[in-house]
Design a protein around this nucleic acid. Structure first.
Lengths: 141, 141
DNA sequence: CTCTCAAGTAAGAATGATTCTAACGTAAGT
DNA sequence: ACTTACGTTAGAATCATTCTTACTTGAGAG
């Protein structure tokens, strides 16, 4: 309870109940990659008056401050996560669930011979596959 | 001129002037990664009566038939390309321009130690960086 | 050659995610 | 208590995309 309040101090962001609820929710669900709408409906349970705009504002400011990461793996909407350790993601082609992919090799280095006229700053790998749940459901057909 | 018409025959798709114009445009610009809106305004020049819905329909059917690839690297909109050879992409963090990344190693194999409960089907690497144009503009400040 | 039908197209409405706007609330410092 | 900057809210606005409906067209049947 103390720790998360310090996070805002460290980030030089004003601490508000809304922000506390939003970041707290995301920190509470490691391994999840919620969208703004998902965060909105969860936070709304404990904080019925919160506005979607506040969700977007908060996600935006926390992302710009580097406390959250935006994940671009779903062409329909953005997803967010709080785990800052560099890693990659996999999306289920069946249900859309997103999972983390941890691999030392793919994080430390990535040999590239040709990036044309670009100067590389970083990279992120989007894997696709089928999750366990969907594999099991397929078996039941 | 003959070749592109055969493409539709091979894909078992009815050939229409609109489809011809759309695929023709994309094939004409190798290395580009246009969005639906960009394709719309270009095709509109030669085909003023075309509808955005036709653009989306055509992109959709060509993607499903495997003749086009959808690129998810820009969280704001989808981009398309006609080059089916497996490769990756890089986006300029400054202007948003998308470039191709060709690299044998990153295409053939990709060692992964942990993908949790997922069965991997494929992967795509989103690089980020700064393009030549933007680097030059920065220098002029 | 004309009819019929399936598929494609056009225009605009509908949707969904995200951003913007304007008014109100709040906490810190003078 | 007063000012001020920042946050929040509700709703409007925007943008990409999808959906709906009616019109068009072309290939095959007769």
């Amino acid at each position: 309870m103390k720790k998360i309040m310090d996070e805002f101090k460290d980030l030089e962001l004003k601490l508000t109940p809304q922000r506390l609820a939003i970041l707290g929710l995301i920190l509470d669900k490691p391994g999840r990659h919620p969208s703004a709408e998902e965060i909105f409906s969860k936070v709304k349970e404990d904080y019925p008056s919160i506005s979607l705009a506040t969700i977007y504002n908060t996600l935006d400011v926390l992302t710009k401050k580097g406390r959250l990461v935006e994940i671009t793996i779903d062409s329909k909407k953005k997803h967010y996560e709080s785990n800052l350790d560099p890693h990659h993601h996999i999306v289920c082609t069946c249900c859309g669930k997103i999972g983390d992919v941890w691999d030392e090799e793919l994080i430390k280095k990535l040999p590239v011979s040709d990036v044309g006229d670009f100067e590389v700053q970083g990279w992120h790998i989007n894997f696709s596959g089928i999750c366990k749940d969907c594999r099991e459901k397929q078996g039941n057909n």
